[in-house]
Design a protein around this nucleic acid. Structure first.
Lengths: 219, 219
DNA sequence: CCTACCGATCGGTAGG
DNA sequence: CCTACCGATCGGTAGG
């Protein structure tokens, strides 16, 4: 097995982005993320990761204390990147509906472009309890941003959203799962999908008003 | 470790439902589904499954040829049950919007009530190629039902849905993921969530019209 | 359905 | 970053 293709961005990589000179440590993270995504954490061996990087398994332990630290690094860094990504997208946007569009666009785009690490970070099952705690804490901050937007949208629309927490969960999981069906050779590119998902999310969030306008509820 | 709690229904179990007398084979499937869900396929050992049932690991091989056959059985049977569940829910429903509601309600309810097996069946990663083929074929039939409903809704609404495939993927993944945040001790029960999800799905599917009505697109 | 067992492979270490 | 190696555990089998 040779190398990884996708460059992608880490806190470090962002600063020196553009070039292709990755440190061994960063290359380990890339390969591990792709393999964890493809086969799962337990089905991926340290030997496979080492193979992908082009070193021996024992050498991995010069960069990470073990397999779990590798998973934690990927998950935690990815959650931080996702949070930074939506915060950047929200800068200067004040209308709740435009905030929701911006959030969903940024989130969806990240989940497509960085689909390997994003899906690994979404899989909390294999994290040790102490690591899980930290990743979940970061994820909670992320979800709180979405809930805040939906609460503002609810207020500005006369309660159209309804159950803010449920709608946040629905929209969040919908966008996170985009990588399960996205194909590089598909009809639509990441930007197109992200734009469409933003409209779907707004439609779902405001389903209460639009539905009752179109026809009264029965139930 | 003792037994499993949840009864749940398999093609066999459905016929004799109501009682608690499960065959050893069915109890193995239940325990395996719960453990595969909780820890993942590779992190679950045959010894853990045997422990949960109350037998020794070697005895499992009197019921299944191996671990993979167990996974395949769970995945395939679950896909069949899901398909049967929505087909039943759609019987006699002819209006596209009501069909979408019925589909999403049935799918969401199944994904909550049978959340262990549903999530295992949604994880295709660990299936051997020949098994994957059969499970994916069944899943495609399932998704085709949803696409058919959305195509009808699109036609009856003057093209409001737009990209039927994308919307089907979005709604399908959203509903499938409900088990990631559902809690037994949460505010909302399965039926309430399923009802709300049906409205969210309809709002998302018709986002095109409602959005353009409310305010013209800019992009 | 059990006891007894096996070859393979894993994560990780020693020591350079 | 490497070679050499180890204890633990896994899925599965033999034979009753």
């Amino acid at each position: 097995m040779a190398n990884v293709e996708l460059p992608s961005l880490s806190p470090v990589r962002v600063l020196q982005s553009g070039t292709e000179e990755l440190t061994t440590r960063d290359r380990i993270v890339e390969v591990a993320a792709r393999l964890f995504h493809q086969h799962g954490y337990h089905a991926t061996t340290m030997r496979q990761i080492a193979d992908g990087v082009g070193i021996k398994a024992a050498s991995l332990y010069n960069h990470f204390a073990g397999k779990q630290e590798l998973l934690y690094t990927i998950s935690y860094d990815t959650m931080c990147e996702m949070l930074a990504s939506v915060q950047k997208a929200l800068a200067g946007v004040h209308e709740p509906d435009e905030q929701l569009r911006a959030f969903v666009r940024a989130h969806t785009t990240y989940c497509i472009v960085e689909r390997y690490r994003a899906r690994v970070a979404d899989e909390l099952r294999d994290l040790y309890p102490e690591n899980l705690l930290e990743v979940v804490a970061m994820r909670d901050r992320y979800e709180a941003v979405l809930r805040g937007i939906l609460a503002a949208l609810d207020a500005s629309s006369g309660g159209a959203v309804g159950d803010v927490t449920l709608v946040a969960n629905a929209i969040g999981t919908m966008a996170s799962q985009v990588a399960t069906w996205y194909r590089d050779d598909g009809r639509l590119g990441p930007d197109e999908i992200a734009g469409l998902y933003a409209e779907l999310a707004l439609g779902a969030a405001l389903a209460g008003v639009t539905q009752t306008k179109a026809r009264p509820h029965r139930r």
